[in-house]
Simulated assay, not measured.
Amino acid sequence: MRVVYDPRHVFYSPKNELNGFNMVENRDKPGRIERIKEIIQLKYGNIIVSSKDFPRSYLYFVHSSDYVSWLKEKQYTLENNQEYFPRVFGYDMCMDTKTPISKNTFEMAWISAKCALTGASLLLEGEDLIYSCSRPPGHHAGINYCGGGSYFNNAALATRYLQKTGDIYVAVLDLDFYAGNGTQDVFYNDNTVLTVSIHGNPSNHYPYISGFEWEIGENEGKGYNVNFALKDDINGRIYLRVLEKALLEIEDFDPDFLIISFGSNTHKDDLTTTFNLEDEDYKDMGEMISYLNIPKLIIQESGFNSQSTEKIIANLFDGLII
């Protein structure tokens, strides 16, 4: 196992987010990744590798040139310590008003993406299990928009990087509480990528407009997008039964690589979400995933409770490394 980490993520420090009409403190703090890195080092020793550099043109594997230019140019209009809150579609290329842009957002999102791309490159070099300490998250970013604190879609970029080497099939499993709407958007018409997401019902939870069970893909991608939208207050037993169904879908697809967008916000102690998974459920989750004999890249998404996250990550890898 290798863990990809870039210390420059600490310079991504958003101060606020706009929740409806209220300005509240942004919960994405650098400490959440720093604590994960410390826990992994204590358990497994020196398995940390630095992110590599890549041509910025790789962003266009996934995102439109208009969107990339918009995000880059928007940050250049800002002063130090200034935060801009997008005014959603029709004015800005963003799906919500709570995804702040600051003077270094573009560069910080690109560093996060490079961690994921580095993980993909290590898979191609023969590694079987990689964890990418990506921050900010990425799975809500679509082809031509940001949202949900996501600017570039790390999982999608890693997928396209793997596929540029040849006839490669990839499964993307999203285990964040919130639906991976951006990843779904990128691959909705693609039969070379299976996207599977287990999440809270979007009738009640972000992103509200996507992640429903009837969204199964279109054109060549029809049947290659699977959403498991779950009720509030479910426990680990129910979640793991759904995960078993998701893993069967992946096994049937028989991909060359598995990318997991992992959020630690499904835990009972995460007060912003409504699932009730216990610490030990994540070890079971890791064990179930480990039975898929496929090289795996795990990319960190959301999960802002550092105390629960350190236990979750420790248990997840105890299950994965059996």
Rank of each mutant, 00 (worst) to 15 (best):
R2E: 14
L123W: 00
F85D: 08
K52H: 12
V49E: 14
H9F: 13
I322D: 12
K311L: 10
Y5V: 09
Y12L: 01
I36P: 08
D6L: 01
P207T: 03
Y67Q: 04
L277I: 00
I39Q: 06
R87A: 13
T192V: 10
D6A: 09
N22I: 11
T192P: 08
D232N: 14
R2N: 07
H267S: 04
L157E: 03
D318T: 05
A179T: 06
R35N: 07
Q163P: 15
D6I: 07
K164Y: 09
D252P: 03
E215N: 08
L123E: 03
S197L: 02
N204V: 05
W110P: 04
F106R: 03
D176E: 12
S150V: 04
V193Q: 00
N181K: 02
N201P: 09
G221D: 02
L129E: 13
Y84M: 12
V4E: 08
Y224N: 02
K164C: 13
S69A: 07
S150A: 13
V226L: 10
P295I: 08
F212D: 14
F85S: 11
V3Y: 03
G31T: 07
L240F: 14
Y5N: 06
V4Q: 07
V10T: 09
L258E: 05
L123S: 01
T99L: 02
N144D: 12
N16H: 13
P30S: 05
E17M: 12
E251T: 07
F61C: 00
G119F: 06
M1Q: 04
T309K: 01
Y208W: 14
S290P: 04
E278D: 15
L59K: 11
L117V: 00
V4M: 09
E83K: 10
M23T: 11
G45W: 12
I294P: 01
G236C: 01
T165W: 14
G211A: 09
L162C: 12
L316R: 01
Y224S: 04
S308L: 06
A120C: 07
S65T: 14
C133A: 05
E287H: 07
S64P: 14
I101L: 05
E244Y: 13
E218Y: 05
W110R: 11
E83R: 11
M288D: 03
W70M: 04
L78R: 07
T99F: 02
I298E: 02
G182P: 06
E251Q: 10
